[in-house]
Write a protein that binds this DNA or RNA. Sequence first.
DNA 1: CCCACTTGCCTAAAGCTATTAGGCAAGGGC
DNA 2: GCCCTTGCCTAATAGCTTTAGGCAAGTGGG
Lengths: 191, 191
Amino acid sequence: MVRAGLTPERLARAGAELADEVGFDQVTVSALARRFDVKVASLYSHVKSSHDLKTRIALYALAELADRVSDAVAGRAGKDALTAFADAYRRYAHEHPGRYDAARFRLDPATAAASAGVRHAQTARAILRGYDLAEPDATHAVRMLGSAFHGYISLEAAGGFAHSAPGPQESWAWMVDSLDLLLRGRAATTP
Amino acid sequence: MVRAGLTPERLARAGAELADEVGFDQVTVSALARRFDVKVASLYSHVKSSHDLKTRIALYALAELADRVSDAVAGRAGKDALTAFADAYRRYAHEHPGRYDAARFRLDPATAAASAGVRHAQTARAILRGYDLAEPDATHAVRMLGSAFHGYISLEAAGGFAHSAPGPQESWAWMVDSLDLLLRGRAATTP
DNA sequence: CCCACTTGCCTAAAGCTATTAGGCAAGGGC
DNA sequence: GCCCTTGCCTAATAGCTTTAGGCAAGTGGG
């Protein structure tokens, strides 16, 4: 018989595509096996478990997203950088909803520490260089930005403000604008 | 044999408790049946499906949370109200993590429209009375507050900033403080 | 070149969840 | 006290997960 040529990497990648199509929580070892036209048990030579598979997809998505965000931010500063940063996350969530969810999969601390999650944190901190905040304000600000952006994307995906005026794009722009304003204010009040 | 006295309401309530103990996505028809010491199939006389059960739990949690938030906000205004509002959400998420997740369960539009979700929106708008924002800024602000608070709570629950200084309480307070500042600024710039 | 060995995918099987169909008895209405 | 609605049961199907053990496709050494 012809071999399918499975590897953990291909499974993660295919799992990411599957997640975009049917939703991350619908990603199942069985569904992935079907996609490769292979029996379910065969996947267990490459991934330890369903949880392991999801972890790999999460790591894949985290890395891909970190690349995009850091690309988007490169060469920009201040509000320009903030906007690019925010938009990169939101665009990724729109283009790859399943992968975005995957990137939020809860990893155990050790795995998280070795993941691209740390690059995300670094990029966020880099953004703040343009706002000249002292500690601990910088940390607070990183957390606030993460919360606001992730929260917005998550509510938007859940259909939160889908069918009411004004459109989600305007509110997003307003929020990014407001946060920029806020951070500039915080910098001023913390000389 | 002795009857267990199941009703959709008791199932929703027990499901909410179960969610707090094992996580909302671990709430299963089987687990709930075990908890009532009853056969699995018996629950299907009271709920249509697993999805129906989760919907009921979500509605229960949404209503309970709406009560708490509106209680917390009652008789307060301005930053005082904003803080109470934010803290009510976060406290609920800490005390009842499973229910908080349940409250974020995606409902179909019709169900959502008939849910306590609308009370949440009303309370959020009421908070903003103290900041005197004109439309569409008020809507933008509601969305931003929802995003920031939900995002923070969600990241905090995911262990996002658990083991690093400063503690999550300080960042939370800083964020609420900042948002208050921001909204007051927005009111000023939109006469 | 081919033999042995590693490795990949398979069959088989057990356990758990969801869901439907049909049965029997408990308890309320008369 | 009888009936009949309603509640919980048994039985059965189907899907996903995971483990154990087998056979054949490649691969490296002689």
